[in-house]
Structures are given as C-alpha cells and as structure tokens.
Amino acid sequence: MTTQDIAVDSKVTVHPVSLALGARLEGVDLTQPIDEPDWAVVRQAFADHSLVIVRGQDITVDDQRRWAQGFSELDLPEGVSPLEMREHTSMFTLEGHPDTLALHNNADRRPGLDHWHTDNIGFVDPPSATVLYAKVTPALGGDTLFASMHLAFEALSRPMQVFLESLDAVHDMRQAFRNPMLEEALRKKGIDPDEHFARHEPAVHPLVRTHPVTGRKALFLSAPHTTGIVGLSDKEARTLLQFLFHHCEDPAFQYRHVWQEGDVLVWDNRALQHLPVADYHPHERLMFRMSVSGDVVRRG
C-alpha cells in the first residue's frame, strides 16, 4: 500500500525531498488535532520515506507532544509513556516537561555533536523515532544530514548481507559520551558520567534489524556507540565496523535538511542515521526534541 492508495479522504499531500529518503507533508496544522484519514496518510508516508517534514509551524510543547504520540506504533505496557526520557539527557530537559529536551546552542554553548549516529542505540529499547522542532535557526549552517540504513544494507553484496545478518553488535552509551563538553554538562547537573554509565551494561542488538512495520532490513549500528561484534576478535570487529561506518556515509544514501524556523521533523531511528552539522557557532540555534519509545530490537 502507498500513500496514494489511502489519501482519498485526506487533505494531506506528500512530496518526496530526495531519492534516498524523506518527504515533506502539506496540509498539516500541528496546532490542531489530526483526524484519522490524515493520520493514515502521515503514517504511511513515514513508513515509505523514514523521515517526514512539516514546515511553517508555530507550536507549543503540548502540540509537539500530541504529534509525537501519533507515531507510537507499538503496544506499550500500561502506564508507560510513548515518549522516552533518559537520565543522561537530563541536563537538556525543558523545565516542567521531562519528556522534552531543549537543545540550545549559542556563543556561550558550542554544539557538541558532529558525527553520524543513531539515537540511544546503547539501550535495550532504543527510541523508534525522534521528533525535532526548530524554534530558532542560524541564518546559515546547522543543517542535518540523514542516511538510509535500508539503502546501505541493500547496496551490499548478497554474501555480505547473509554474513551480517548472522551477527550481533555491542553498543556502549559510555563510549558515546566520552566528550569533554558533554561530560562537563553532566557534572554541572550533579551527574558523574563514570558513575552513571557504570550502571548501564552495553546493549547487544542484531547488526541487521527488520523493520517492524515495513519488513525492510536495515543496518543497525552507530559509530560513537558500537564497540564490537559478538563472536569476532577485536581486530576482526574493528576492521568490519570501520568498513560499515564508511559504507553508511555514502552520499547516495543521504538527504541534507536545511532548517527553517518552524520546521518539525520526525525520523525513524530504526531506518536512519543522522549527522547534525556543527558549523554555526557562535550563532544561536534552539531545538525542542521528543523521542518516541521503541522496543527490544529483533532480527526477524
């Protein structure tokens, strides 16, 4: 089924933004509840393109939360919020909204992330999606690149695909936070990075995951987090992972988003990696981020 098949009763239109991934949605007003025919088109576009973009929005935290909750495709246990929050990001939490991060950079706070990654892959239940709202953007710079891990997997030879499908990778959140700026921010909030991450054992996930909605296979790894492969020697794992990290950065798999104030993006962490380009210091950039809960990653 495609968005054209289900769009008869909807005012939402879908416009792909690249051959690799991503679609812009028109006919969506996030200040208002969205009816089910429109949600059907939005969810199908998300499944088809892994990234959906809504422009020109002036929304509240509650508006963003309502939008984010519409992407929860999983049956969650009773009492569990579809928006996940982790203690290690508490230094960014928006006051009064523990499910919302305020990512604010300016002359006094340099951007700290400038590498390809998948959000929170080092947990047993990484978030299925990220929702990011651009409140303030620099005049130039601050773009975000996205890469399709579906395309990255499909571009490999069949023997390599079969080999990778048999493997599990190890992901360590502590490794990803070995960054002086992030460690300092944690300590200012009273969190000792070594003590905090010592409580989190590295997570093990299939190196190739099957998307629970589309059934499409994707590479599932993240250079800042992924430290090894079960059953391989350190040397073998390093060699294979370096090949895959480089392979995932192929421009043929990518879309580059140039942010405008009022943009709201939702991307599928089960299918994409992203790279926030840290090239805009000392200019101001303010984003509000929410994450949609995921589940334990499964191979099939």
Rank of each mutant, 00 (worst) to 15 (best):
D5C: 04
A7E: 02
D9C: 02
K11S: 12
T13C: 01
H15G: 00
A20D: 06
A20N: 06
A20M: 05
L25S: 04
L30N: 06
E36T: 08
P37S: 04
W39Y: 05
A40V: 01
V42M: 15
R43Y: 00
Q44Y: 02
A45Y: 01
A47G: 04
H49T: 00
L51W: 03
G56Y: 06
Q57F: 09
T60R: 11
T60G: 12
V61E: 12
Q64T: 09
R66D: 09
W67L: 13
A68V: 06
A68L: 05
Q69P: 01
D75A: 14
L76T: 08
E78K: 11
E78N: 08
V80Q: 14
E95K: 13
H97M: 02
H97V: 01
H97K: 02
P98K: 12
A102Y: 03
A102N: 03
A102Q: 11
H104G: 00
N105D: 15
N106Q: 14
N106T: 14
A107Y: 05
R110H: 12
G112I: 08
G112W: 11
H115G: 06
H115M: 10
W116F: 07
W116Y: 08
H117S: 11
V124W: 00
V124I: 14
S128G: 14
V131C: 10
L132S: 07
L140Y: 09
G141L: 09
G141M: 09
G142C: 10
L145Y: 11
L145T: 03
L145K: 08
A147G: 12
A147V: 10
F153G: 06
M160F: 07
V162R: 11
D168V: 04
D168N: 15
Q175C: 04
A176W: 01
A176E: 07
F177S: 02
F177Y: 13
N179M: 10
A185M: 13
D192Q: 09
D192F: 07
P193K: 06
H200M: 02
R209C: 11
R209I: 15
R209Y: 04
P212T: 12
P212A: 13
K217R: 15
S222G: 09
A223E: 15
P224N: 12
H225M: 05
H225C: 05
H225P: 01
T226A: 09
I229A: 06
V230Q: 13
L232A: 13
A237T: 07
L240G: 07
L241A: 07
Q242C: 04
L244E: 11
Q254N: 03
Q254P: 00
Y255H: 12
V258H: 14
W259T: 05
E261F: 00
V264H: 08
V266N: 02
D268C: 07
H274N: 02
P276M: 07
D279G: 10
D279V: 10
Y280K: 05
Y280V: 05
E284S: 14
R285V: 14
R285E: 15
R285C: 14
L286R: 15
V292G: 10
D295K: 13
G300P: 03
